[in-house]
Computed example of a mutant assay.
Amino acid sequence: MEAHSSSEEFAVGCMLSIKTTLGDDFQGQVITFDRPSNILVLQEGLKSGSGPKRNIRLLKANYIKEFSFLGQGEDPLDLKKCFLDLNTLQSKEESAIRQAETEAERFGVGVTAEAQTIYDALSKTLPVMWDKTAIVVLKEVRVTSPYLPESVIGGTPAANERVRKVLEFERKRLQARNPGQ
């Protein structure tokens, strides 16, 4: 059967055998079809007694090479049979938020591309964080604009000297990559 995206063929509960243009071959039950995005949401496998865990597949309908109708089943989202592990979902959400916050802290606000490049280079070998437009290294040494070795202040003499050396090295690397600047 050719793949047509009519709502009758992708009705909730339909059990289908699907071959994709990418070479996948599987069976699943239609959970929903979103016409505006052309995405078909399927519960893979046709065993209704597979326990509380289900494999859900989102498939762009234009990737369906061919499909055949295998029958009509019960509503796959029947609330009496549907189980969501909210604790696991909440844990994953919190982890993703923490990861996004950590990633966001790596980007300076109101700093030049060169300052961000220097920050990224320093972060490869030393613990760094932004304090507005200043780079704080080792929680004690500050590197302020224009981010030159002379711009390094604070910290113990050893920490200060280490940051200066790393900064000098990184600036030489930057200059070698961009000789006209």
Results as ranks from 00 to 15, higher is better:
T112D: 07
L58R: 07
L16S: 02
S50F: 05
C82T: 05
C82K: 09
Y63M: 02
V30R: 00
A11R: 14
T133L: 08
L77V: 00
D85E: 15
H4L: 08
S50E: 09
N62I: 01
L42Q: 02
S48A: 12
N38A: 13
V128N: 01
A3Q: 12
L59P: 02
E114H: 06
F10L: 05
V109A: 06
Q27K: 12
F67V: 00
R57D: 00
Q90W: 06
E2C: 05
Q90M: 11
T125A: 14
S91I: 07
N62H: 06
V41Y: 00
S6I: 04
V41I: 10
D85L: 11
A113R: 13
G45N: 06
G23S: 07
C14N: 15
A96H: 10
I39A: 04
Q27T: 11
G108L: 04
G45Q: 04
R106V: 11
G28K: 01
E105Y: 07
F67P: 00
T88G: 09
L40F: 00
S17M: 04
K81P: 01
L89S: 09
A100S: 14
K132L: 04
E114V: 12
A96E: 11
S95W: 11
R35Y: 12
S7W: 07
L40S: 00
A115S: 08
D131S: 15
K92G: 07
G108K: 05
N38F: 08
G13W: 03
L126A: 13
K53S: 10
P36Y: 11
G73P: 03
F33G: 01
M1P: 06
E74V: 01
T88V: 15
S17Y: 10
E2P: 14
V30W: 01
S50L: 07
A104Q: 15
I18H: 02
K124R: 15
K53I: 11
S48E: 02
L59W: 02
K19E: 10
E101S: 07
S91K: 15
I97N: 10
I118H: 02
G23N: 04
I118E: 01
N55L: 12
V30I: 04
L42M: 06
E44A: 03
A113G: 14
E101W: 08
I56L: 14
H4N: 09
D25W: 05
T21A: 06
T32G: 03
F10M: 02
K53M: 08
V30T: 00
I97L: 14
K47L: 11
L42F: 07
A3V: 04
K60T: 03
E94R: 14
L46G: 04
F10H: 05
E9M: 12
Q43Y: 03
V111F: 10
F69C: 01
F107K: 14
M129H: 15
F83W: 14
G49P: 03
G73T: 02
S91F: 12
R106D: 02
W130D: 07
V12K: 00
S50T: 04
